[in-house]
Design a protein around this nucleic acid. Structure first.
Lengths: 411, 411
DNA sequence: CTAAATTAGTAAAATATTTTATTAAATAAG
DNA sequence: CTTATTTAATAAAATATTTTACTAATTTAG
């Protein structure tokens, strides 16, 4: 880590103090928040937005310039009068790491101060198990990334690790994995690495990435549906990620939408996930083959237990008719689920992400048909339906953004 | 209106200005907001919360005292040292009117600065029709209330009218009723009455009342279900009412939860409202009587078309077995709907309101059973289920609070 | 091409706010 | 019952911020 971290100290402390020194810290943060939003602003613009006088604004901006946190981006487009200097954040001022922990691999990436993903390593082999060895492996991968020649010399302000299962984002506990200690998992890794660590749930991290660096423009009420092996949901309300009382919001896969007699892995029956997920796709595929449907993916029903969701998706891409039919069916059920969301939440935008969206229109079109059919048209006409833009990078981008935004305290 | 409105002028103007005079207005508003939240606070507490020094705080508090907006509530409970004076809002400083417009009557009430409902008139005869005469009737009722001896001499800062149908709360347009003019309905009434007027959707107004003056204590993520002739929902997220993109959120009655072949009045089929609403109760009652069920409410099936939801509720209260059975059935379906909400939103509290909640445990118990059965127990164990506290006054309290809070700009 | 108009930024004066020190009012300890 | 301790509130001094007036840099109109 470089030595200029002292200049950024005020970003790392969150104590509430009185006095004018602290007031200045607040205003520095406010200016950074504003520049984060506007990309570039002039001193008069900042003064007006923040209700501070121009001389005071100039003084704080000068300090931030000296700290190397913001820079003069030159004078541009003045309609009349003396042109104002535009100021913006300095990309290289500090960096953040996002780590996306999956079942069989890890994705990891480096985000700069201006939210550019400057480095990423995808599909680093890893096996997620609830053991100390697995955790050790994770920490080694993280440490190795930090020691990377393109990372080692940079100021890393924080790290966010996205994990599946129950996570308490406030105290950094993970309840589903690596819960060996009294000490929160985040704290444990933090002590080993020496950099502030946050945790987040995987679906929510993906949603967060998509909300801030994906298809979302200015929408403030957005839903991100993660249709993979399971079915997850991230909810953005009023520009902020919605967690619910204990961070359990978005159990979209387990809303009781069907009267089928299918027992879901959650123990209940009739869950949407029993008809709209990779898991459902796999089950339907098995049933179809056993009852004699023809497919190019397996030749005998004995090979069935080696088939993966990925195989069926690939099958659809290669025109396998059974795969296409089943994926369309999944899409239809998903669309009915989305109708529930639309009627309840009247969102501006719904984003479809996760592996099953790689099948293009086969999933999308039936989803859209069912959504139109089952939702109130007045409400539905308000909502756009899009496909994820960040794809497999949604997790690392989301995690790194969470790391960044938690430090800069815009949640 | 009394002449001291000039002292409250700063509450009525929402212009963004620079300079220290405006800064002071912001701080006055902040102190009022704080006292609204805490009921009473000392100068040191205010200074700390707002990050202002004690002398400055004293100066602003003194001004507010002179304005008659806040008052000294005396010195209390000091553990050691000189006891601090506690300051609180003055109930009589200003007032707000809430008007709840229903199909066949109007409720109207007066709320003081400290959120006490000081006067209310319930079930004033009125017939809601989309005609100029009906609107005129509404304005007459409102004007009459303002001229009431207990109202006339008071400073009314604003009025909120709660109406059924589509409402744009920002510009004050009502699209379903009284949409005769270019001018927004709110503006039209405002010009006639001479007091600032806001509009709100009826279900949302009820929810708002319950959130702020009902069973809600410190919960920030709350759902209010209005089970009356129809089925409505108000959503409180992060302490604020959630509207969705165009104010259409909460169409809970029309989520496609059933595979029945029942056409809903919205045009779709399978809507929750076809199985869980007063309308559904009435339909089921008719079907049951026609197929020979015995009930104390009607003696012949020819009398069926005069039966109202109210009759069936009264029947249940008087131990009519058919009524009780049907209401329990409605409760069960409602519970399955609530399970969807719980799984998606992980709320702290769900409040049941509307006429059907007057049947006590007949509805409540089956609702709770179905909710437990169909929701994820981990998520559900977080959520309390309560019955509305404000009952028939929820509408006027909610509307008056909206009038108040829009002026004080805490949304 | 010059002067007027417009907007940015700076210096000095005026004002406001915070700090520090002090006084006031209460409780707890000896 | 007196003194030390704690907390609130005020006064005066120190500091910070805003205002006002002015200078700088550019565009537009004539």
């Amino acid at each position: 880590m470089s030595s200029n971290i002292s200049k950024l100290d005020f970003l790392l402390t969150h104590e509430e103090q009185g006095g004018v020194a602290f007031k200045n810290v607040i205003r520095k943060r406010e200016i950074i928040s504003l520049l984060d939003l506007t990309e570039e602003s002039t001193i008069p613009e900042i003064a007006q937005s923040l209700n501070i006088s121009v001389p005071t604004t100039t003084a704080i901006v000068t300090e931030l310039l000296e700290d190397g946190i913001i820079e003069d981006c030159g004078k541009i487009d003045s309609i009349a009068g003396r042109p104002a200097s535009h100021y913006g954040l300095v990309s290289e001022a500090c960096y953040f790491i996002g780590m996306d922990v999956r079942d069989t691999y890890i994705n990891i990436g480096l985000l700069d101060f201006k939210k550019n993903l400057t480095l990423s390593e995808l599909e680093i082999p890893f096996h997620l198990e609830n053991t100390a060895e697995s955790l050790e492996q994770l920490i080694v991968i993280l440490q190795k990334f930090i020691n990377h020649p393109q990372v080692g010399n940079k100021t890393i302000l924080s790290i966010c690790i996205s994990l599946t299962g129950r996570i308490n984002i406030d105290n950094g506990y993970s309840y589903s994995f690596f819960h060996f200690d009294e000490e929160p998992l985040a704290k444990h890794i933090e002590n080993r690495i020496g950099i502030k660590v946050f945790l987040e749930n995987d679906s929510r991290a993906m949603a967060y990435g998509e909300f801030h660096k994906g298809v979302v423009k200015n929408e403030k009420n957005v839903l991100f549906v993660n249709i993979d092996y399971g079915l997850g949901l991230g909810i953005l309300i009023d520009g902020k990620v919605y967690y619910g009382k204990s961070g359990f919001s978005g159990e979209f896969g387990h809303i009781p939408l069907f009267s089928n007699e299918m027992i879901c892995h959650c123990g209940k029956k009739g869950c949407l996930e029993t008809e709209a997920s990779g898991r459902a796709l796999l089950r339907m595929f098995g049933e179809a083959v056993k009852s004699g449907s023809v497919t190019g993916i397996v030749s005998a029903s004995s090979e069935l237990n080696t088939v993966t969701v990925h195989d069926i998706i690939k099958g659809a891409q290669q025109e396998d008719v059974l795969s296409i039919e089943l994926i369309s069916k999944i899409g239809y059920h998903l669309g009915r689920g989305l109708a529930v969301l639309v009627n309840l939440l009247n969102p501006e935008l719904i984003i479809l992400g996760g592996a099953l969206t790689n099948t293009g229109d086969y999933l999308y079109l039936t989803t859209k048909i069912a959504l139109n059919k089952y939702s109130l048209s007045l409400v539905n006409s308000d909502s756009k339906l899009s496909i994820s833009k960040l794809k497999e990078k949604a997790g690392i981008v989301g995690a790194a953004l969470i790391a960044r935004n938690r430090i800069l305290s815009f949640y």
